[in-house]
């Protein structure tokens, strides 16, 4: 077993692009689920809308990427309004069903043959649509630090990505300790009480949905730019569920929860995967039990199992304290 290699891979994943994408997605979910108590199961839809808006506008319509980013934010706002207007007045589970359905609609429309000329069908859109972005790259040589190797473009994406994470974490920190944040957290505890104190709950929930959705769109931007392609099946409900796993791992309603969660999630995921791969390759795990192909499947099983166990035994996340757990049980 090459433990050095395993750790190198796991560490690279923990600070890599996927960790950034899921940190951003989970920061948005944290706003929805952690602070406001909104059950958004369509975060993948917000990522898809962000990613596809940029790819379609730049590749098919030759729009400047900066304008495309703005349009991507706009699309996320529109999506949030479309989701929120019918459901935010209803019971929480309606939002869950409508968001998960909408995310699926977005994915299936994006992969449909009929709209292939716009969205590229199931292959998605590939093309050099990040040129304007990469032209600003101040790192012409990339990075080669110990085992971490980044091409210039990758390094630029990772640096900008983490900068975005820092910015959104800071914004979350600022806004959640304001009176606005107080109203939001109060809504999570009991909507009717907040209404009885003269606050327009619907309005606040809508703002939260929009805010978290826009952060999701940014996760989509990073997804699209880093891969230089968008593919519909990357934006399936599994993405949303992974983002929930990330959020709950790091701790919902904690400012740094999504970031810690994402780093640990990707570290563990790749760690386990590499250990299994090597174990299979070195016949430590016999072939009848697991083939190299099955390693990826075991990974998914572990995510599901982890999500269950976390929610049952540590719903406050791995950093949370017992005090809050006691509160959860009562709520």
């Amino acid at each position: 077993m090459d433990w050095t290699f395993i750790f190198q891979q796991a560490i690279s994943a923990g600070i890599g692009v996927n960790a950034i994408i899921f940190a951003l997605a989970a920061i948005g979910l944290n706003m929805h689920f952690g602070y406001t108590g909104l059950l958004n199961f369509g975060q993948a839809g917000f990522l898809a809308v962000g990613a596809y808006t940029v790819a379609v506008l730049v590749v098919n319509f030759d729009v400047s990427i900066w304008l495309a980013f703005l349009a991507g934010i706009g699309s996320a706002v529109v999506l949030a309004l479309l989701l929120g207007i019918p459901t935010l007045r209803l019971r929480a589970d309606y939002l869950a069903i409508v968001t998960i359905a909408t995310a699926e609609i977005i994915r299936q429309v994006a992969r449909s043959v009929s709209l292939r000329e716009y969205f590229g069908g199931s292959d998605g859109i590939t093309g050099k649509f990040g040129k304007d972005f990469f032209d600003l790259n101040p790192f012409p040589n990339g990075l080669s630090l110990a085992f971490l190797r980044y091409t210039p473009n990758d390094l630029w994406v990772v640096v900008v990505g983490w900068a975005l994470v820092v910015i959104f974490v800071f914004l979350t920190f600022l806004i959640m300790r304001s009176p606005w944040g107080r109203v939001i957290k109060a809504i999570r505890e009991d909507e009717e009480a907040v209404r009885s104190l003269g606050k327009n709950v619907y309005f606040y929930k809508m703002q939260s949905l929009i805010l978290g959705g826009v952060v999701g769109a940014f996760a989509g931007f990073v997804y699209a730019i880093s891969r230089q392609s968008v593919q519909p099946d990357n934006y399936s409900t599994a993405l949303t569920f992974f983002a929930y796993a990330v959020l709950i791992l790091g701790g919902a309603a904690r400012v740094l929860g999504p970031v810690a969660g994402s780093i640990i999630f990707w570290f563990l995921l790749v760690f386990v995967e590499q250990v299994l791969r090597q174990a299979v390759a070195n016949d430590l795990i016999p072939n009848w039990l697991m083939t190299p192909n099955q390693v990826g499947q075991v990974r998914f099983m572990l995510v599901g199992l982890g999500l269950m166990l976390l929610m049952i035994y540590r719903p406050q996340g791995i950093f949370g304290d017992k005090k809050e757990l006691a509160l959860d049980a009562r709520a």
Binding site: D93, A96, Y244, V303, G304, L310
Partner: peptide, 15 residues
Amino acid sequence: AMLVVSIGLGLFIRY
């Protein structure tokens, strides 16, 4: 919380 548990369970069983 139970809803999220069911998501985890579903993912686990599926794979």
